[in-house]
Design a protein around this nucleic acid. Structure first.
Lengths: 260, 260
DNA sequence: GTCTATACCGAGATAGAC
DNA sequence: GTCTATCTCGGTATAGAC
């Protein structure tokens, strides 16, 4: 992230971020698509073996049997590769939930499916996740959690929470903010998760279950008609702070891919 | 964060982190202490002017009239300088609160003083804060929010929340977790703050006030005897997850400095 | 359009002479 | 305690082969 001459040019960071999966639906798979895929796969393996910081682009290029320049031809930076991974995670999450969410009728159970499956997907890649966390606090960086460039991941993940809520009985005002509140909680889980060295990250899974139970308790209270003024305050607070994402912006990622 | 040869050696990152303020209380001020101070001051000015990423150690060294190697003799890395800044912030916060907290009898008011004064202290240094946020998600890094190396800042900040609570009437179990909950909320404020481009970061201050009002509402409910089982669940959850810091660990930083 | 080869830059960091 | 020289790294740039 540091080296390199002259000015950073973040905006040019993603030369072509379309995923292999999407490309398959298009006219034809070019040779370059395969090469891009090879770099991507090889890089992720290296990241898992030696960590993100510990892997150089030169190693990636070497492992993919090509020159440094060729690797940079496809990925503008090391981080761009990681972003591609994040995209894959979100897709995998949505795929798993497509099956899991339908079979479970209970709201609490659906929330559990959402959270646990996310951790399952990430179980071997906590190091990678922590590499991504680096950018969360940097508003100027395109990999930041609030950057325009990552909007699609953010809104897709929030849409997943909406799906989990489904038609669970809930006052409309609460329904408006619930997906985002769940999403923030999910971020908290991820944060705990990457720090969690317990075998199989069992502590994280226990935390998820305990927290969800508490949430269900909170929900039964929050649902009460008496609580409406309080809910109103909370919503106003979030709106004034610009923390409420318009619902139409929250949509699953796979839906976008198909639409192309 | 990236460049540099061979292996990182995080453990050796802080060659001598004792602050100038503390050193003044010791036998004598060596020439090296002055040099260290000069580097520190010059570096912070550069960071404010050109940002953290935009400032090179070579510039810092040049501005302090010394060689690159000499600068590295005092600070093992660019980040180590920033950590020194964070230490200064915590001290400044405690100093301001020493006056502010005594005069205000109302709990809500005291919380406001704590949160607003923190933002005031940081108002010109949002870029620096975001540089610090980079490490929060990396469990292996000593600048991480959960690393042993930053324990003192963490516990000092929590101790501040304890001070703000003071002898406010509160069930003992709630009193046990309240400081940490407030601290986490305070982290949320900081996160919003570094993203907040509104003039004077007025939106952040409004968010603080709105959120604290909501907290006071929550508190009146949480205090009720009926809520005891619920509080118990929450505490058990935090304890099981290892998220409860023993209270004796939470103490103001200035107290430690004096104690030496 | 895809890729190699290579030279170059500036960054953070280090070793060892003084 | 300080400096010079040097290392590795990430990234840029370019010329040219296929």
């Amino acid at each position: 992230m540091t080296g390199g001459g002259v000015k950073r040019h973040y905006l040019n960071m993603f030369k072509d971020m379309r995923r292999p999966e999407v490309l398959k639906n298009e006219k034809r798979i070019t040779k370059g698509d395969l090469t891009r895929d090879r770099i991507f796969t090889v890089a992720l393996n290296l990241f898992r073996e030696k960590g993100f910081e510990g892997t150089t682009m030169r190693e990636v290029a070497a492992a993919a049997n090509m020159s440094l320049g060729a690797a940079y031809y496809y990925f503008a930076s090391k981080e761009a590769i990681v972003l591609g991974y994040y995209e894959k995670v979100q897709e995998e999450h949505e795929l798993r939930l497509a099956k899991g969410l339908e079979t479970s009728k209970d709201f609490r159970e659906r929330l559990g499916v959402v959270m646990h499956s996310k951790l399952d997907i990430l179980k071997d890649d906590r190091g990678l996740m922590s590499a991504l966390f680096r950018f969360f606090g940097n508003p100027k960086h395109p990999l930041s959690i609030f950057a325009p460039e990552t909007r699609i991941f953010r809104s897709s993940a929030i849409a997943v929470m909406e799906q989990a809520i489904g038609d669970e009985k809930m006052p409309p005002d609460l329904r408006e903010i619930a997906p985002q509140l769940l999403w923030v909680m999910h971020l908290g889980f991820l944060f705990y998760f990457i720090y969690d060295e317990s075998p199989g990250q069992e502590k994280s899974h226990r935390l998820v279950d305990g927290a969800l139970d508490v949430v269900m308790n909170l929900l039964t209270v929050a649902r009460l008609a008496v609580m409406k003024p309080f809910r109103g305050k909370l919503i106003k607070l979030m709106k004034d702070a610009g923390l409420l994402i318009p619902r139409e912006e929250a949509r699953p990622m796979l839906a976008e891919a198909v639409e192309v």
